[in-house]
């Protein structure tokens, strides 16, 4: 299947959905009993409406623009070359896993895993890079302790 897209179309569509959802959520997320023209909900409502208007303009800009890239949706997406483009997703997954795991396994173990994981991600073969990175995790832990911050 062939589709034609550009970044304005994608951005417009994504933010259109987000701003509609946020607009629907306003009454449940801002429970104010204020009366008058200015309440706690006034500015957030205005902002969400601006976001909504911008999304529509961006979507229209994207649809009217001739500058579009063609994308083919097929099994080729799962081939080696296409998967290479998804490499940053591994980095993102490592970062999010680190943030989730840190409260459970502690700063030192989580950071050792992340720092060495990043070096492995970049294909580093020099062992002393791993040593420096690991030593720095301990250094960070004790440096912050020195300023009265105990990391988890």
């Amino acid at each position: 299947m062939k589709i034609k897209l550009n970044s304005n179309m994608v951005t417009g569509a994504i933010f259109l959905v987000i701003s509609v959802i946020l607009h629907v959520l306003i009454p449940s997320q801002i429970k104010t009993y204020e009366t008058g023209s200015m309440t706690a909900a006034t500015v957030p409502t205005l902002l969400i409406r601006i976001l909504l208007a911008c999304s529509v303009i961006l979507l229209a800009q994207g649809l009217l623009s001739k500058d579009k890239k063609e994308y083919y949706i097929s099994t080729a997406l799962f081939q080696k070359e296409s998967l290479k483009r998804l490499k940053p997703a591994i980095y993102i997954a490592m970062l999010l896993a680190y943030a989730v795991l840190m409260p459970r396994i502690g700063f030192i173990i989580a950071s050792l895993l992340l720092a060495n994981g990043i070096l492995a991600y970049f294909g580093t073969r020099k062992w002393w890079f791993y040593l420096i990175a690991s030593a720095n995790v301990f250094l960070a832990y004790f440096a912050f302790r020195a300023i009265n911050v105990t990391l988890p």
Partner: peptide
């Protein structure tokens, strides 16, 4: 200075900073 090493160090210090 190897960027990959800098990257690994920066991320650790940034996270420690946010926690602190």
């Amino acid at each position: 200075i190897p960027y990959e090493l800098m990257s690994a160090l920066i991320i650790v210090y940034c996270i420690a900073g946010v926690y602190s």
